[in-house]
Amino acid sequence: MPKFSEAEKEKIRLEMMGCAHRCFIDKGLKSTSIEEITSSVHIAKSSFYVFFESKEALYLELLDLEGQEIEKKVWPKVEKAKDVRAAIKAYLHAMASELESHVLTQRLITNLEEYKMVSRKVNPQYSATQTLRSIVPLMAFIKKYKAFNELIDEDVEVIAGVIRATLAMIIHKKDVDKKIYPKVQSLLFDAVANELTKQS
């Protein structure tokens, strides 16, 4: 196996991540081969493991990077909300906006099938703490307001499921007239926020 200098390793690693990100978006994890990723940087397939533990670990690392970007933009907006109803609406609007440009996370939020396939092959503790950045803070947010008795009497997982299902409307954006989509989205987000919160 060839030896790489630290500078070479860093350059190759970043290039492999760029190629993998494009492939995962275009074709998904299952249809992207390790050889496709390594050939993009002109190294042998066996050298892949110098840089990443597995294809799934690489996928999760890319999700984690997207998650960090999203967290920085979404949660400050949520924290500025005056009450839980406004906070849910802020979360939905901010997350929907971010999902437009973060396709891997969009896939995670709207369809867990690929994520489940990945998580079966990696350390569960790693996947729970490092890659569900868009889900773990949401669960903490729901638990906090449940403790304040400001959300409906349903399990945390049920409330999170409703919020995630609402975000799935992004994959149906093409099915709604683009002129009315913002109004449809806003009305849906308002309805969900009202339904999940206790009426004062």
Rank of each mutant, 00 (worst) to 15 (best):
S97V: 00
H102W: 00
A191M: 14
L112S: 10
Y126T: 02
T110S: 01
E114K: 10
K11T: 09
I37E: 02
Y126F: 09
P137N: 11
Y59I: 09
F24D: 07
H93P: 00
L58K: 05
E195M: 15
N194W: 06
I70R: 12
A57L: 05
L29G: 04
K55V: 00
Y49M: 14
L63P: 06
Y145M: 14
L132V: 15
Y91R: 03
R133K: 13
F52M: 13
E8I: 09
V176F: 06
P137L: 08
L58E: 06
H21K: 14
L188D: 08
K144D: 12
Q130S: 11
V122C: 07
Y126D: 14
Q125S: 05
I25F: 08
V176A: 07
D155V: 04
H93D: 14
A147E: 07
I12S: 14
N194A: 07
V41K: 01
D190T: 12
N194K: 14
V136K: 15
P124N: 01
V162K: 01
K198M: 13
F52E: 06
L58F: 01
A128L: 15
S101M: 08
L60Q: 11
N111P: 09
E8W: 04
A168I: 02
C19G: 01
A191K: 08
P137I: 04
E10D: 13
K82T: 10
D175S: 15
V158N: 09
K73D: 07
I163D: 01
D190L: 06
K183P: 01
I43D: 05
D64S: 12
L151M: 15
A168R: 05
I170W: 01
P76T: 08
K3A: 10
L92S: 05
A86P: 08
D175A: 14
F189Y: 15
E66T: 04
K198D: 02
E10L: 15
K45N: 10
K146A: 13
W75E: 03
E15C: 02
F148L: 10
S39N: 09
I171L: 14
D177K: 06
S5L: 11
V78A: 05
K173M: 11
K72G: 07
V156E: 13
T129N: 05
A86L: 10
A160L: 07
I171C: 15
N123E: 09
K143T: 04
R13M: 12
S47E: 06
F141R: 11
K146C: 04
K30R: 04
E6N: 12
A7E: 13
A81C: 11
K80W: 00
A193G: 14
A160N: 00
A20H: 09
F52S: 10
V156I: 15
L108G: 02
E98C: 04
A140C: 02
D153K: 11
A168F: 01
E114F: 03
Y126M: 05
Y181I: 07
K30E: 08
S97C: 10
L60T: 09
I159L: 05
